[in-house]
Structures are given as structure tokens and as C-alpha cells.
Design a protein around this nucleic acid. Structure first.
Lengths: 106, 106
DNA sequence: TATGCTGCGTTCAATTAGTGAACGATGATA
DNA sequence: TATCATCGTTCACTAATTGAACGCAGCATA
């Protein structure tokens, strides 16, 4: 349920904004609140993220979702995997578009 | 349930091999037989694919899943959308990897 | 102080999506 | 004819996902 894709996306979001609510996170990733909550908990459970209690300036209560060293390392690896995957997809699609052009031509 | 992703992938598979069983299709796309059946039916329903009865050389019964003109056009459009999406993802990941390198450096 | 308002994380019943074993049908083969 | 393999189809079962509802905490206003 917590796929590499969401593991990556969540770590990325948290890294660039640890002060983010689960609702905001859900909205940014295009998933439901329930799923965001589930995934986040899983990341905390595994020690990739630490939820630090804090009080916001604008009358909010919530956590600061900070990447642990483990989480940072995990994100590095995931990012590299993602880059490779995307490069491969990109390459395949270039072939595909070339095929397509041949098709259209005829 | 039948997302653009699978619409695209199925049309692609069928185009390059109309003589393919639902089981083979499912395996190639990494989905279940049930889902493959469902998606294929949806494509036929919408007129993108036509199932033509035929008898294979190697003692099989099955259909020839042929793309209709509409299906071909649909695939062209989907492919273009996909290329754009992938290019964008690729671009974003390049930025991301650059950020990452900065991180790692420090 | 009390009341209301807002946004927080959490829960969980309900919905939706996905799975694959089982079935009957069809040809090929012995 | 009997057996075997593969076909598409079905559908009960499981997994994944949703979002309304809840209690809580802090701030603003009466």
C-alpha cells in the first residue's frame, strides 16, 4: 500500500516543507487524507520520519515531520532509482514516438 | 478503473500483437486476468478495439484484438500526452537530482 | 471567563478496485 | 473417443482507498 512512489513523494514533500499538515500533503499528492495518514505513519514507524510536536505561528497545532538521517538516505536512494526509471521510460517513449511518426507518415 | 495509463499500454500491446490472449496481456502489463478482461471489454465497448473471431495456428481459440481507426487515433493522442508527461517528469527529476547533489556535497 | 471558530491528527464504515480459481467451450492430439 | 491445453468469462473474495465524523488544542471575540 505504501509503494516506493509514495514513499519517495512524501519524503520529498516533507523535506522541502516539514511544517505541513496531513491534509495539505494529501492534496499535494492527490490522495485521500486517510491514505496520507496511513503512509506517514508507516514512514514514522520505520524510522524514516520523526513527528515533532510544535506550535505554529498561525494558531495551529500539529507536528513537524522531519526526515531522520535514515529517511534522508532513503530518499537519496529512491531518487536515484526514480531517475533511472524515468530515464528508461523516456528513452522508450522516444522510440515509441519515432514509431508513431512512421505510422502517421504512412 | 481503466486509466489512461492502461488504455495506452493495452492499445500499444494490441497494436504490436493483435494475436494475444488476455492472459498474455495481463502478464505483460503486470495485472490480473480479471482486470485485463475488464479493460479490454471497455475498449471494445467504446469502439477503440474490435475483437475478431479467428482460429490460430497453434491449437487455440481466441480473438484477434484489432485497433479500430478510432483506437489508432486514440493511441496517437495518448502517446503524445504520455511523451509530454514523461518529459516533464524527466525535467523535474533532473532538477531534483541536482538538488540532491548539492545536499550530498554539504 | 465562556463561547465559537479553525485546523490538527485519528478512526473506521462504506465504497471501489483488483484478484485468480473455476467453469464451459473449442481445437489439436493420441 | 478421450485427453489435454488454452481460450474468454464470471464472481466471491480480498485489498486498497475514501472522506465524514470525532475529540483536541489554540486563538479571537464577547
Amino acid at each position: 500500500m505504501l509503494t516506493d512512489e509514495y514513499r519517495y513523494k512524501i519524503l520529498k514533500e516533507l523535506q522541502q516543507d516539514p511544517n505541513i499538515s496531513q491534509r495539505q500533503l494529501a492534496k499535494r499528492l492527490g490522495i485521500s487524507l486517510g491514505k496520507a495518514n496511513f503512509c506517514l505513519k508507516a514512514l514514522i514507524e520505520k524510522g524514516s520520519v520523526k513527528a515533532e510536536n510544535f506550535k505554529n505561528s498561525t494558531n495551529k497545532v500539529g507536528y513537524l515531520y522531519l526526515l531522520t538521517p535514515k529517511g534522508i538516505e532513503e530518499k537519496v536512494i529512491l531518487t536515484q532509482c526514480f531517475l533511472q526509471r524515468k530515464l528508461k521510460e523516456h528513452e522508450e517513449l522516444e522510440k515509441e514516438i519515432e514509431q508513431l511518426r512512421q505510422e502517421v507518415k504512412s
